[in-house]
Design a protein around this nucleic acid. Structure first.
Lengths: 209, 209
DNA sequence: CTCTGTGAATGCTTTCACAGCG
DNA sequence: CGCTGTGAAAGCATTCACAGAG
């Protein structure tokens, strides 16, 4: 089985949307419904799904519950995973309390910051530690995912520490690209770059693709 | 001139990296340097840049200051733009104080929330208003960009309000796709989906592309 | 040499078009 | 009918390979 990044991203979005549909009590969804919800075409959705050898029902579309279960299984999204957040500034502490992570099976089980005073002041149900304890805690709590919300100049260093401790996936909110061994999966979310992208497209000298 | 989204995104990243290089005092950067910094190949970087009819110097690479200026000009990234944030919960208020936006020419000039008590409690230099005043303030302050950080169920409604008031670009932090007229540029940043993507790739049944 | 600039070739992804099914 | 499933075609983006320039 072998999916492109684009396919994976679409399927992840579909998975999230199926959850919404399920909570609403919707039973079936056609490829077109799904496509609209994630911003794709129905062809692409059908192809993505069929690449996973999942089949739908003619005339009705896909069974919401079943499809969600199957997508989750094929992409290992049903399994819970432990995560930690490094850097508990404004953004990091907002992320600590971002309930959607937990709802979706990502358990944030630790927060880290280098500022001891900050650790004492923070009010959250999640355990917080100084960065010096990253290695110990990651191993003890079986943390697989690291969320980096430290100032950009420290991001690479933190990433190295996380990986040495055994983290295999990194979500990086700093605006620098971090260099990683290629078995580590990583996504960069650079807010400023997203605004730049919007600004650039607004300026108009672009295709619509 | 006509660039694909991928090209625009890469160029935006290059633009950001050139700023870092410039502050460091670096004078020249080769296509390979830039490529490494943004996670691309040198071919792609050269092609992207040449699509904009910008030329470098043989044997030295690109002049950092000049290239930044030219990219900024072609993509209209030098012009300042006003932005607002709707939804001042944990995330929204963190974004209000995200200095990188201002540094990069995105002036956050207003925050909105539906909860009047919250507006009174918030401590920030930026003016905050009830959502009922969105239309008035957007017009008065010439706001072009809207950053949506409200709970997902309100996102579509807020987006419609913003657009009616004249906003042309939207950065959406909620996890629903919002439907927009196609002259509106919009980017979705769904944190949970990024974690899902990482989890899916960790599970391994994917290409490396 | 070492780097850029770029047509040509390659390799992906998406789209199309239509058979199949209830 | 209204939907899925899928080979074939089209459309893009990336990579290659090499000329050009100092």
């Amino acid at each position: 089985m072998s999916l492109s990044n684009n396919s994976i991203e679409r399927i992840c979005k579909i998975f999230g949307y199926l959850d919404t549909l399920d909570k609403q009590g919707t039973k079936f969804a056609s490829s077109l419904d799904l496509a609209k919800a994630i911003g794709a075409t129905s062809y692409t959705v059908r192809k993505d799904i069929s690449l996973l050898n999942i089949i739908g029902y003619t005339r009705k579309g896909y069974d919401v519950k079943t499809l969600k279960e199957e997508l989750g299984q094929k992409l290992c999204l049903n399994k819970k995973r432990n995560a930690c957040i490094v850097g508990l500034g404004r953004l990091g502490s907002a992320l600590l309390d971002y309930e959607k992570f937990q709802e979706d099976g990502f358990d944030v089980v630790a927060g880290f910051d280098s500022n001891i005073n900050k650790l004492e002041r923070i009010r959250t149900d999640i355990d917080v530690y100084p960065v010096s304890r990253i290695n110990e805690i990651i191993i003890r709590k079986h943390i697989e995912l690291g969320i980096i919300a430290v100032p950009s100049e420290y991001a690479q260093n933190i990433a190295d520490t996380l990986i040495k401790a055994g983290v295999t996936g990194i979500l990086n909110f700093s605006y620098v690209k971090i260099n990683l061994p290629k078995n580590i999966i990583n996504v960069n979310l650079d807010f400023t770059n997203s605004l730049r992208f919007i600004a650039a497209k607004l300026s108009g000298n672009t295709t619509n693709k």
